[in-house]
Simulated scan of single mutants.
Amino acid sequence: MANTMTSAQSGLAELEPGTDANTALEFFDGLKPTEIEDLIGNWRGTELPTGHRLDGLLAKAGWHGKRFDDSETVHPLVFERPDGSLFAIDPAWLPMSLLTSQVALAQRLARPGLVRLASAFARTTRPRARLRMTRFRDVVSATMIYDALPINDVFRTVDADTVVGAMDMRGYDVPYFFVLRREGARPLA
């Protein structure tokens, strides 16, 4: 049987176990731009480890992914409960100082149980981001802009059901990378 994997898919498969920031940037730059319409739906996220100081943080916290209902209705931080139900967190509750100057402490504190506990205060059903087309690294592509944080997630397309995100965050010279894979519709609780 012939291999039907595209070069973008095989390139991502090679990088997912771990790579460095320069290799990830080179791969990202070679991907096609993403259109806003292509992101509409539910997405399961995984980190693309590059040695970034934030590597592992979302996985430790039990991050599930993102949800894009339309360009104005975006849930950037979706988590999963033990029963499989999904809930969104308002990113405005994130202590930005932990993510920029106290990353080691944030890494130690990140636990799914702690996120579920914090969801009593931070859980939301309201959108907390929006999508716009922006220029990043000389390419115009779909970008998720957080409402309350100095963060833009810029997307590039691997295939119709897979995108790579580059989190462009104030305080970091290189992006934090992640992968989103489309999944079926699941309600937010």
Rank of each mutant, 00 (worst) to 15 (best):
Met1Ala: 08
Ala2Gln: 00
Asn3Pro: 00
Asn3Glu: 13
Thr4Leu: 05
Ser7Arg: 05
Ser7Val: 06
Ala8Arg: 01
Gln9Ser: 08
Ser10Arg: 13
Ser10Met: 09
Ser10Asn: 10
Leu15Asp: 10
Leu15Thr: 09
Glu16Gln: 14
Pro17Ile: 12
Gly18His: 12
Gly18Lys: 10
Thr19Ile: 07
Thr19Tyr: 05
Ala21Gln: 14
Asn22Met: 11
Thr23Ile: 07
Leu25Glu: 15
Glu26His: 11
Phe27Asn: 07
Asp29Val: 02
Asp29Ile: 02
Pro33Ile: 05
Asp38Cys: 05
Asp38Thr: 07
Asp38Gly: 14
Leu39Ala: 10
Asn42His: 13
Trp43Phe: 11
Glu47Trp: 04
Glu47Cys: 13
Leu48Lys: 07
Gly51Gln: 09
His52Lys: 06
Leu57Arg: 01
Ala59Pro: 01
Gly65Glu: 02
Asp69Gln: 11
Asp69Trp: 06
Ser71Thr: 05
Glu72Val: 03
Val74Pro: 01
Pro76Gln: 06
Leu77Pro: 04
Arg81Met: 08
Pro82Cys: 08
Ser85Phe: 02
Leu86Lys: 06
Phe87Asn: 06
Ile89Thr: 04
Pro95Ser: 05
Met96Thr: 13
Ser97Gln: 10
Leu99Asn: 03
Leu99Gln: 04
Ser101Ile: 07
Gly113Val: 01
Gly113Ile: 01
Val115Cys: 04
Leu117Pro: 01
Leu117Asn: 05
Ser119Met: 08
Arg123Pro: 03
Thr124Ala: 08
Thr125Pro: 01
Arg126Leu: 13
Leu131His: 00
Thr134Ile: 03
Arg135Met: 11
Asp138His: 14
Val140Gln: 14
Ala142Tyr: 02
Thr143Leu: 09
Tyr146Leu: 13
Ala148Lys: 14
Leu149Met: 14
Leu149Lys: 12
Pro150Arg: 03
Val154Cys: 13
Thr157His: 12
Asp159Tyr: 09
Val163Met: 06
Val164Asn: 00
Gly165Gln: 01
Gly165Ser: 11
Gly165Val: 07
Ala166Phe: 04
Gly171Glu: 08
Asp173Pro: 06
Val174Asn: 10
Pro175Arg: 08
Tyr176Lys: 02
Phe178Ser: 09
Leu180Gly: 07
Glu183Ser: 07
Glu183Arg: 13
Gly184Arg: 08
Ala185Met: 04
Pro187Cys: 05
